[in-house]
Amino acid sequence: MPPATSPAEASAADSGWPRVGQREQEDRQWTVASGRWTTLAMSSKPAWQALDESLKAAPPAANRAWDLRPIEQLDHIGAQLLWEHWRHEWPATIELSPQHKAVLDQVAQYTVATPDEPSPSLNDRIREFSHNGPRAMYVMRDFTALVGQLALDLCRLARAPHRGPWRDFSGHLYQFGATALHITALVGLLIGVVLAYLISQQLRQYGAETFVVNILGLSLIRELGPVLAAVLIAGRSGSAITAQIGVMRVTEELDAMRVMGIPHGFRLVMPRVLALAIAMPLISLWTSMAALAGGMLAADAALDISPAYFLSALPRAVPISNLWLAMAKSAVFGILIALIGCYFGMKVKPNTESLGRGTTSSVVTSITAVILVDALFAVLFKGIGFRA
């Protein structure tokens, strides 16, 4: 074990620490610096903490004078500390020895104060927009090119159906549609139960229990069913589309397809878009049916509305035009989700970090697009599907 430090040795070591004291002289506050202002003396943690506390007690001021004559040693680190504390300006009154002044003069000569960054001007803002603005235009250009290529591929398929990628189409239709039925049915059922219980609490207060059929039917068939199914498919299939195409970019399969003359749009984009355009309305209808089943069971338990009455009153409460509207916008949702997934998959760079970032961007963009398009449908078709 190292020998214990005696109180006399500790006091002798403390006497060499850099210190700052205060004294009043001639109606002026003097700050007196003493000790050894060297790197070695300030290297210990107690010495640095004591110096930091004493410097905070002596902030720079116009009427404060400094006396540096008691300083035993001063190197460039100590001088730099004093110069920074003075905010790169000499005190109005200072007393110091010539050798200390030489060190401080050298530090002051080669220390340049960092100026405050000015606020950006209008010209700077315009220049920044000129650099960042075209990025959104490039995205619009590339996405429009993807949509245009899809239209050309559909014309090519109509002209020669026997050369279409029907095997890829059937595989994607199974993957995006059949394998998603269980999760969409479960979520739809739970949403229907929760919504029916919440509505029943309010309708019971006004004796309007029978209107639960109208509210559940319109909300689930027209809005919640398609949107809920689209959000689930965007997180499930949209991310899978981006990941599949992105992995092909990482493994250079896309480059190999280009070398062999296989068009990306005809073999990769078009089958996925067609599969989701067909599967999405069916998934939306399936989700709405599951939600209505859950709402019907909850209405029977909470409001004593029998399933027979629920099923008989539903066609009268919800016109069939709501179903066609829901399936039409579900097809639009499917096309958007597939296009966005393919776009971000094509933009993946050949590294795993870009693959993860592209998959996340694909899901977020797809969900945002679904909500925006649903709001657009609600505004454009606000007079359709309601009883007069």
Rank of each mutant, 00 (worst) to 15 (best):
A4N: 12
T5A: 15
A13C: 10
D14T: 10
W17L: 12
V20M: 10
Q22G: 08
E26P: 06
E26D: 15
E26I: 09
D27P: 05
T31E: 05
S34I: 10
S34A: 15
A41E: 02
A47T: 04
A47E: 01
A58W: 08
W66I: 09
R69Q: 10
Q73V: 05
I77G: 07
W86F: 12
R87Y: 07
E89H: 06
P91L: 02
P91A: 07
I94A: 14
L96N: 11
S97G: 09
V103W: 11
D105T: 11
A108W: 00
T114H: 14
P115Y: 09
D116V: 11
P118T: 04
L122E: 08
D124S: 12
D124N: 03
R125A: 15
H131G: 03
A136V: 06
G148A: 14
L154F: 06
R159I: 06
H162Y: 03
L173H: 01
Q175N: 12
G177S: 02
A178I: 15
A185N: 09
L186K: 06
G192E: 01
L198D: 06
I199H: 10
S200V: 09
Q205P: 02
Q205E: 13
G207E: 05
E209V: 07
T210N: 14
T210Q: 15
L216Q: 08
A230L: 08
L232A: 08
A234N: 14
I241F: 01
T251H: 04
A256V: 07
I262H: 02
M270I: 03
A279V: 08
I283S: 02
L285H: 03
M296E: 00
L303D: 00
S306K: 09
L311F: 13
S312H: 13
A317V: 05
N322H: 07
W324E: 05
K329H: 05
A331D: 06
F333P: 00
I335P: 01
L339R: 00
G341N: 02
F344N: 10
T352D: 04
S354D: 15
L355G: 02
L355T: 00
G356E: 00
S362P: 11
A378T: 13
V379T: 11
V379F: 13
L380K: 04
F386K: 01
